[in-house]
């Protein structure tokens, strides 16, 4: 009894409805590359191990654009290491609701990714 209704309610609560409009992936990646002088698109050794081994094994795909590691580098440069790291952790926790928070969406080889990179470092 009420099984369908309960399932529907859970689905409704668990579904993020994107408020974002779509943009061009090439432009977004170009902009991000320029924003940190080309650095965030170059992977460090730890990133390579994580992305090429662990992420592939676990089939973990980041919904954000830039990815959390790129975001950390950009934010650390913009707002300092401590604030940048904490913002990156906060963003990692918010990934499930990326569609709700993002500025706009891009189509990355058939996969939707959500762009989120505030220019400001203001917290309050």
């Amino acid at each position: 009894m009420f099984q369908k209704e309960i399932i529907f309610l859970f689905l409704l609560l668990g579904t993020s409805v994107s408020a974002a409009y779509s943009r061009n992936l090439i432009d977004e990646k170009f902009k991000l590359g320029r924003q940190a002088e080309g650095k965030p698109l170059v992977k460090t050794e730890i990133e390579k191990i994580y992305k090429d081994v662990f992420a592939r094994t676990m089939y973990s795909k980041c919904q954000w654009l830039p990815s959390d590691s790129q975001y950390l580098k950009i934010k650390a440069k913009q707002c300092g290491q401590a604030r940048g790291s904490l913002l990156a952790v906060g963003r990692f926790l918010a990934e499930a609701d990326a569609a709700l928070i993002s500025e706009h969406a891009v189509n990355d080889n058939g996969r939707l990714r959500f762009v989120n990179l505030r220019e400001s470092c203001d917290i309050f």
């Binding site: 408020a19 974002a20 904490l86 952790v89 906060g90 709700l100 500025e103 989120n116 400001s120 309050f124």
Partner: peptide, 24 residues
């Protein structure tokens, strides 16, 4: 500590993003 502070910063940052999206 990192996860706790990140959770606070993340919620505030998300509020800013939601406001910016709303006002765009």
């Amino acid at each position: 500590s990192v996860v706790y502070l990140g959770n606070i910063m993340g919620s505030m940052d998300s509020s800013h993003s939601l406001n910016e999206n709303h006002q765009r």
